[in-house]
Design a protein around this nucleic acid. Structure first.
Length: 997
RNA sequence: GCUCAAGUGGCGGAAUUGGUAGACGCGCCGGAUUCAAAAUCCGGUUCUUCGGAGUGUGGGUUCGAUUCCCACCUUGAGUACCA
């Protein structure tokens, strides 16, 4: 009986589906274990061999945990809202829901054929109304919450209203907009409803605000910072400009400190935690207020009735250097710029602002070295020396960070230093013993302050502490911690996303009552923005909220009395993926996003596997939402994933043909790899060069003869080095790098008549290079064909065998024959020509040893996520058992359980052939017994000065003295020593012998 | 620039606490089987001037270093005027 993998795999995939083998129950005697893969977006291209890598690893772990007696939750679903389906809809008119449905079908078929142990009964899709109902619901909870810094958690907005009603906002310690005005209870109660709503918006965890956004005109949408790469959109590479728009934002900044601290308690990779720390960007320093002088030496008289002079607030991490301030710099966008600029400087300042606004983010980044700025004509007063300090604007100061203003200390900050040099601003030195003639001195640890009044002689730490005290006394500053983390824009001008459960009364946003959710995505004629520049939902005809009927009605009924316009933006991609891991616990609950019982049972994800590209997007936002849900008592843990592993990317091995760049040939001329290599060698080796010249001659003669080219012009020869490598589809190339010329010719019209300059043996060899796997590089390898040719078990084993899970590694289909023939050997160990080979025979000592060392190694490997080494271990074990002619059921049966997480189909089949009626999936993992590994002797490596020269078999129970005697008496020892007496003999019993001297 | 990974045969990689470097597989070479091919099986495969040398380079610690320390080089990823 042969190993018919296709039949076996189809049979067991059907069995698992029909018997719901991997369905997880929400209550069980067994301990729980939750294994999760990062949410896939079902793209139209389907899976390539790189995608399942993480899924295979998590599947092995999930199956292993079932063998260990855990109740395993291993779900899968789709992050099915997103831009590609929408862009396809724009191009073809096909509804994104249809495209998405088809893509999901393809994905599902591909996933099923690899034999994953997913519990498909819990599948979720973010674009399904029964799912996004709860995304909308969470949005409403965020809207109805504010962040109380005193209790350090989110609280209900009704609590805040109570405080406002009874005592105003003077004592409220909340995370809110910076521009909040102070009011008393009387003020609050006298405000009209609109004003009250405006104020509350400044506190809510999701709020509507005019924000400067990254607007991409080509896509007609706003992009998040992490969707922009090098100043252009990540998708499509379109230019991005800055624009002010009214947008929903998420007050993630409220959670900055907790998101940072939370990293200490989770077992995620260090590089990922580091990225999140950088992204949160905590810096400790002080905020300092500088009073603006209208005239050069006089503080401006208060003009408003609140009796406060205009001040500029700065954030600095070096308040200790305050006596080194020689100018102030504001971002050109700073709101005080127009107010403080003097009439004489107005023209210059306006021109500068205009120039910087025109420059795209990309331009600004491209030339960081160009120093530019303008003097406003205004001065501020130094809080201690009372000296005037000129105020400049410069685009090296970012409006979005800190207060958008810096106190410039050129002696201590390189950018301030460069700016001062460029504009001839004085650079006072306030550091003892520091040389600032060439560059700024920014070493905090070596700082000793000088020329700074009461700070003289102090270190950075001492001076910082002292100056903050002094600033507080003056009421002009305090210690402050700043975070780089910005509030996240939550509006997208797109169609294919979650609609907001929001309508507008008197231009103020109102939440639709949760009981009317979901608010379904309306139908539209076109998926583009409207002619007036509104988002695609502006095309919807039935998109207004009737507050009487509590339903979505035609926009023609809008009267702004009982029928109001609905929000036209949709939510971003990260909305649905920020909480899906909780939904899997209770995927079909219609009354709650998940029941208390389910949440209490599963609690959190024990193992989360996915790509590191989500480090600062999904993985930060989802932690934020989880913390919010935790504050509201809706989930039981504030970090949802205990352990997270990043799988590395599988890279493609691209194939290249080399086209000669010459106009002398009408047809493309493609050169085989050997010529290219010779060209490279040309400069290196004379003999090679001569040989190559001979080649060249016969080559061109050949070209002339076969292709009727009568002349080779001299330009061709001078252009000889100029080849263009062109990607060839890897499916035309065999394992010896030979190109299927006919297939290549038929591939694309332009190559139909191409002239191929082959190797001497008439084969055409392609060049190879490792690159990211992508359609455009024609190096994508599809798992479907591999499953047909070698089977899913081979694919699973091979993906693991390639190398460590976390590493980047190139795919090479040729190598799969190794694991495939291993599976055939495994099969043969159990099944012979006439049927099953397995007997009730007593196992041999050697076979027991093989089994138990395999149990030990495989268990350790899985615990350490070292799946590649397990595959080697299986190979070794099968080689050994075959050599031992092992037929014993006592060995072969437990061995199947070991391999079942990796190659589940073959394991199930052989398991059933051994007479089991139940699936192998929950068979208990074999127990390791160390007694089978005890050796009676050890083959000692005998080293001389650390170099191993020979080995010597000695009894295990020899002590150091006996070993030494045996070694010294050995003839090879004497041979090595050549009469010398060793200085020292190091003996580690059971390990090594090292003779020194 | 900064942060984080990683550098081992022709290739993917192994060596878990410092103790026989190159396991396992691919590829390649030789052989068996076959009319032939595929498949299968067996043997070999770091380099070598056959003394040895050897884990990116140069130092160091140690009886002993792929493993620990210092400096540097290269590659990849992330981030970037963050005050």
């Amino acid at each position: 009986m042969k190993y018919h993998f296709n039949e076996i795999e189809a049979k067991w995939q059907k069995y698992w589906a029909e018997n719901q083998t991997f369905k997880a129950e929400n209550n069980s005697e067994k301990p729980k274990y939750y294994v999760l893969d990062m949410f896939p977006y079902p793209s139209g291209a389907g899976l390539h061999v790189g995608h399942p890598l993480g899924y295979i690893a998590s599947d092995i772990y999930a199956r292993y945990k079932r063998h260990q007696g855990f109740n395993v939750l291993h779900p899968q679903g789709y992050d099915s809202f997103g831009l590609p389906a929408e862009q396809y809809a724009i191009q073809t008119g096909q509804h994104p829901a249809l495209t998405t449905e088809e893509n999901i079908k393809t994905y599902r078929r591909q996933l099923d054929q690899i034999g994953f142990s997913f519990d498909w009964s819990r599948e979720v899709r973010t674009s399904d109304p029964s799912y996004y109902k709860w995304t909308q619901w969470i949005f409403i909870q965020l809207f109805n919450s504010w962040y109380n810094d005193d209790s350090d958690k989110a609280e209900d907005i009704s609590e805040l209203i109570k405080i406002f009603t009874s005592e105003g906002n003077l004592k409220v310690n909340a995370v809110c907009d910076d521009t909040i005005e102070l009011f008393s209870a009387e003020d609050w109660n006298s405000f009209d409803s609109k004003k009250q709503q405006q104020i509350l918006l400044q506190y809510r965890l999701t709020y509507l605000a005019e924000t400067e956004v990254n607007w991409c005109p080509a896509l007609g949408t706003v992009l998040a910072n992490d969707e922009i790469v090098n100043g252009v959109s990540e998708r499509g590479g379109h230019p991005v400009i800055r624009k002010k728009m009214t947008q929903w934002s998420m007050r993630i900044s409220a959670y900055a400190e907790r998101l940072l601290q939370g990293l200490e308690n989770i077992d995620w990779t260090d590089s990922l935690k580091e990225s999140q720390r950088n992204w949160i960007g905590k810096s400790v320093g002080a905020s300092i207020k500088f009073k603006v002088k209208s005239l050069k030496f006089k503080v401006e008289e208060p003009t408003t009735n609140n009796q406060q002079p205009t001040t500029i607030e700065v954030f600095t991490t070096r308040p200790d250097t305050i006596f080194g301030v020689s100018f102030m710099t504001l971002a050109p966008e700073h709101e005080l710029v127009s107010e403080i600029t003097t009439p004489e400087q107005k023209a210059e300042v306006d021109a500068y602002i205009l120039a910087t606004a025109k420059r795209s983010e990309r331009d600004r980044m491209a030339d960081v070295k160009t120093i530019s700025g303008a003097f406003t004509g205004a001065y501020v007063e130094h809080p201690f020396t009372k000296q005037p300090i000129p105020v400049w604007i410069g685009d090296y100061v970012l409006a979005g960070y800190g207060t958008g203003a810096v106190m410039s200390v050129p002696c201590g900050d390189q950018r301030d230093y460069d700016f001062a040099k460029h504009f001839n601003i004085p650079i006072p030195n306030i550091f003892e013993g520091a040389d600032i003639s060439e560059e700024a001195f920014s070493d905090k640890d070596k700082t000793i302050i000088a020329n700074s009044d009461f700070l003289n002689g102090l270190s950075y730490k001492e001076a910082t502490k002292k100056i903050i005290q002094e600033l507080e006394k003056l009421g002009q500053g305090q210690g402050k911690t700043n975070y780089r983390l910005r509030d996240a824009v939550f509006s997208r001008q797109r169609y294919w996303g979650e609609p907001f459960p929001v309508y507008y009364v008197n231009s103020m946003p109102q939440m639709i009552d949760a009981k009317h959710l979901p608010i379904r995505l309306p139908e539209v004629e076109k998926y583009l923005p409207t002619e007036t520049g509104e988002p695609p939902l502006g095309n919807a005809t039935v998109w207004a909220w009737d507050t009487k009927q509590c339903s979505v009605v035609s926009i023609q009924l809008i009267d702004n009395k009982t029928v109001f316009p609905l929000e036209l933006n949709t939510m971003p991609g990260w909305a649905g993926s920020s909480w899906y891991f909780n939904r899997y616990m209770d995927a079909h609950n219609e009354h709650e996003f998940a029941s208390k019982e389910a949440l209490n049972y599963w609690k959190d994800v024990d193992l989360y596997i996915g790509g590191s590209e989500h480090a600062t997007g999904h993985l930060l936002y989802s932690r934020f939402w989880q913390k919010f849900l935790f504050d509201k008592g809706l989930v039981l843990v504030d970090e949802y994933a205990k352990k997270l592993i990043n799988q590395g990317m599988i890279l493609g091995t691209s194939a290249f043909v080399y086209r000669l760049n010459s106009n002398d040939f009408i047809k493309p001329v493609l050169f085989s790899k050997c010529f290219i290599e010779k060209v490279i060698k040309e400069e290196k080796s004379y003999t090679e060069y001569e040989e190559y010249k001979k080649h060249e001659k016969s080559l061109f003669n050949n070209v002339k003869k076969n292709h009727g080219v009568s002349m080779i012009s001299s330009t061709v020869k001078s252009d000889w080095k100029h080849f263009s490598p062109i990607h060839a589809d890897v499916s035309f190339v065999n394992s010896s790098d030979e190109l299927d010329i006919e297939a290549f010719k038929n591939w694309r019209e332009e190559f139909k008549d191409a002239i191929f300059i082959t190797e001497i043996d008439n084969t055409y060899k392609v060049g190879r290079e490792v690159e990211k796997m992508s359609k455009s590089k024609y190096n994508v390898v599809n798992p479907d064909q591999i499953c047909v040719d070698y089977g899913a078990d081979s694919l699973r084993l091979y993906e693991m065998f390639l190398g460590p899970l976390e590493q980047y590694k190139p795919w090479n289909t040729a190598g799969i024959t190794g694991v495939h023939s291993f599976l055939k050997k495994l099969w043969k160990l159990y099944v012979g020509e006439e049927g099953l080979n397995v007997t009730g025979e007593e196992p041999s000592k050697d076979s027991l040893k093989t089994l138990h060392k395999t149990i030990k190694k495989v268990a350790e490997d899985i615990e350490n996520f070292s799946f590649n080494t397990s595959v080697s271990t299986f190979m070794i074990a099968v080689n050994e058992l075959t050599a031992q002619k092992c037929t014993s059921k006592d060995i072969l049966e437990p061995f199947l359980i070991l391999i079942s997480p990796y190659a589940p189909h073959i394991a199930e089949e052989l398991w059933s052939q051994l007479g089991h009626n139940e699936s192998i999936s929950t068979a208990p993992f074999p127990k390791f017994d160390a007694s089978y590994l005890v050796e009676s002797s050890k083959n000692y490596p005998i080293s001389f000065n650390g170099k191993m020269r020979f080995t010597l078999e000695l009894p295990m129970d020899f002590n150091a003295k006996q070993i030494e005697e045996a070694v010294m008496a050995h003839e090879k020892t004497q041979e090595q020593l050549q009469g010398r007496t060793p200085n020292k003999v190091i003996i580690v019993p059971g390990k090594i012998v090292n003779i020194v001297g």
